[in-house]
């Protein structure tokens, strides 16, 4: 008896359209669509893709409650056992949507699996909730990704207990599972220490997380002489978002001149951030990027001056690697221009 599976894909792989169709609401098609065809062949008689959900990436990310309900309802309607999503490769919003789809299904008790590039922000967000197979960063890797996804999915469906990520070929989920070892902990500890003493390889039972700790700088001695810059991950951009900073999974940041700007007004500036209700930020962008208050402090002599450029990106599903790189670039630019301190706003 084959397991009944729903496949979740986005508007592009569903053949509906590209970026311009990223806002479409979810719909169901009987049977397979897009990569589902290849997947179904690989699953063979172990599992059957009974239906495919196609949903716009933006729609999913922006309407999670509704999409989540749609997915669970569809699983119920088709009497399905499991959900498989993507693969999303390095498409950030698709990765987040696929990860979310699996999370919603998993929360309702269904078996799930997806695939995406390890640096896709969907991994960090959802790896705790679902198995994710690592793929290449573009759809050119579809041929490689599908067989791995199908094989692992079949294993999970059959109820087989999976081993470690390394052994089974999925991205380490960072989830701790209890088990009964052969030896008592004390024996395991002394055996491990002996290997360590001898310089032999050993595997720790728990990997200590390594934190990228940043030592705070000492406080500014005299604010009244200092140049302060404003940087935000709240997504405030000039009206029209000239650099097309994405509402989520941003691929870039922007720097904009505010010489002579004393107040960010609605209509001249807006927010590009898709992770919060934009109403209040659009009404008065100072709420996220407080240019008005900084100008007041400048006038009152409380600060030396407000730096003439503000930097902005959208901190919604941002890849950690990108955030780090941009932080370093922005930091260098500020330092080279004798800025003493920066106020970072987020949401």
């Amino acid at each position: 008896m084959a397991y009944r599976v729903i496949h979740y894909i986005n508007q592009f792989f569903g053949g509906i359209g590209g970026e311009e169709k990223a806002d479409i609401a979810p719909e169901v098609r009987d049977g397979v669509a897009g990569p589902g065809m290849g997947l179904a062949k690989l699953l063979g008689d172990k599992a059957e893709i009974v239906a495919t959900i196609i949903c716009g990436d933006n729609y999913c990310v922006g309407n999670q409650e509704e999409v989540g309900k749609f997915i669970v309802d569809t699983l119920k309607k088709y009497n399905a056992d499991a959900l498989i999503a993507g693969p999303a490769f390095n498409a950030g919003r698709y990765g987040m949507a696929s990860g979310f789809a699996c999370s919603a299904a998993a929360a309702a008790g269904y078996t799930t699996l997806t695939g995406m590039y390890p640096e896709n922000p969907g991994v960090e967000l959802y790896k705790a909730n679902t198995y994710i197979v690592p793929t290449t960063d573009s759809a050119a890797g579809m041929g490689k990704a599908l067989p791995v996804m199908a094989a692992l999915f079949a294993k999970i469906l059959s109820g087989e207990k999976l081993g470690t990520a390394e052994a089974e070929g999925y991205i380490e989920r960072g989830v701790r599972i209890n088990t009964f070892y052969e030896e008592v902990g004390a024996e395991r500890a002394v055996a491990m220490l002996l290997k360590k003493i001898k310089g032999e390889p050993f595997t720790t039972e728990y990997k200590m997380p390594v934190f990228d700790r940043v030592t705070p700088r000492p406080g500014v001695k005299d604010l009244s002489k200092a140049t302060i810059a404003l940087v935000t991950s709240g997504g405030i951009v000039p009206m029209g978002n000239p650099d097309h900073i994405a509402a989520s999974s941003a691929r870039n940041y922007g720097g904009y001149e505010i010489d002579g700007v004393t107040d960010l007004v609605s209509g001249k500036y807006q927010t590009a951030h898709g992770g919060y209700d934009q109403t209040y930020a659009n009404q008065d962008p100072d709420r996220v990027l407080p240019v008005d208050v900084l100008r007041d402090l400048e006038k009152e002599g409380k600060i030396g001056k407000l730096y003439h450029t503000f930097y902005t990106t959208v901190g919604n599903g941002t890849a950690v690697g990108n955030a780090k790189k941009w932080g370093e670039e922005i930091g260098k630019q500020l330092k080279d221009n004798n800025v003493q301190a920066v106020i970072l706003t987020s949401t």
């Binding site: 999976l162 470690t164 990520a165 380490e172 989920r173 960072g174 989830v175 701790r176 599972i177 209890n178 088990t179 009964f180 070892y181 052969e182 030896e183 008592v184 902990g185 004390a186 024996e187 395991r188 500890a189 039972e205 728990y206 990997k207």
Partner: peptide, 22 residues
């Protein structure tokens, strides 16, 4: 939670219980 069971996760390594990461 197994926290409520006596010596369930004993830190002298008294039992065979441990964990691994998936």
């Amino acid at each position: 939670e197994i926290q409520a069971i006596l010596a369930a996760t004993n830190e002298l390594g008294f039992s065979k219980i441990g964990a691994y990461t998936i």
